[in-house]
Amino acid sequence: MELRNHPPSEPDVPALKARALNLRRKMMGMASGKGEGYIAQGLGIADCLAALYFHEMRHDPANPDWDGRDRFLLSTGHYSIAMYAVLAEAGYLDDGELPTYGLNGSALPMSTFDETVGVEIVGGSLGHGLGQAVGMAMGLRLDNSSARVFCEFSDGELDEGSTWEAAMGAATFKCDKLVALIDCNGIQADGPVTVAIEPVADKMRAFGFETYEINGNDMAALVEALAACREANGKPKAIVLRTTPGFGIPTIMARERAHFVRVGNDEWDSLIEELERENA
C-alpha cells in the first residue's frame, strides 16, 4: 500500500466512511476478545483516524520509520484499541495480531507503548501528547522537513495544566505544521467532564490556534477541516471534534457510563450485529 499522497487528492468520502466502518469492526473484534475495553472512545474517534490515515497524512506502512512521514501522536493512550485498528487497516499490523489486544504478553497493550510499530509516543499519562508534538514540529522545521504533526488529545486532557503549557509553546514557536485534534466526547473516568473547559474552541483561539469546530463523526466535515489546516501561516491549528462515544452502535451510545465498557460475553455478538445493521 502506497500512501505517500501529498498533497492529498480529492477526498473520497464514501470510501473513507467504509474505512471507518472497518475500524469499528476491528475494534469490536478486539473488545469482544478481551471482553472489555475503551470501545466507546474508539468508536467515537474512528472517523478522524480514517480521515487521517487514508486521506490527509503522508506515511508509508512499508517504511514506518521514514523520516519524511507525518507524525500522528495519540495522547490518550487508552484509545489504543482505535490506534491498533487503524494501524492494522493501513497495513502496519497484521489483522491476526489484533485478538491479542490487552492480553498478557501482547505487543498491543491496553495503553499504547512506543515499542508498537507505528506508535510514536508512550501515551496514557494524560497531558503528554501536545508538548511532544510541539517539540517534533520544532525539530522537523530545523531539518527543513515538510512533514506535519497531528496530535490527538481529549477534552479530559484539558484538565491537565501541561496541555496549556504546550498550547502556549505551539503558538510561541509558530508551529504551523502542527494540528491539534481535540476529541471532545464529554466523558472522563468518573463520568461526564467536570471541570469548566468550555468554550474549548474559543480557548484554543485565545491561545493562538487557528481553530475549527466540527462534528467529529461527520466524514465530509473532517476532510474539509483537515484541508483547511494545511496553510503555512505561522499559526498552529486545532480542530475541536465533537464526537459521540460509541458512535455507530446505539446501545453503547446510550450508555451512561461509557468510559470503560465491560459487557457480558453473550452481548458482544449482538453489539457487533447492531454495528452492521446500523451501517448497512
Binding site: 508538548g131 511532544q132 508534538a133 517539540g135 522537513s145 503549557e165 502556549m168
Partner: peptide, 12 residues
C-alpha cells in the same frame, strides 16, 4: 513543557 518539547525534539 520543557521536558515534553525536549522529548519531541529527540524523537525526530
Amino acid at each position: 513543557n520543557l521536558i515534553m518539547i525536549a522529548a519531541g525534539l529527540s524523537k525526530v
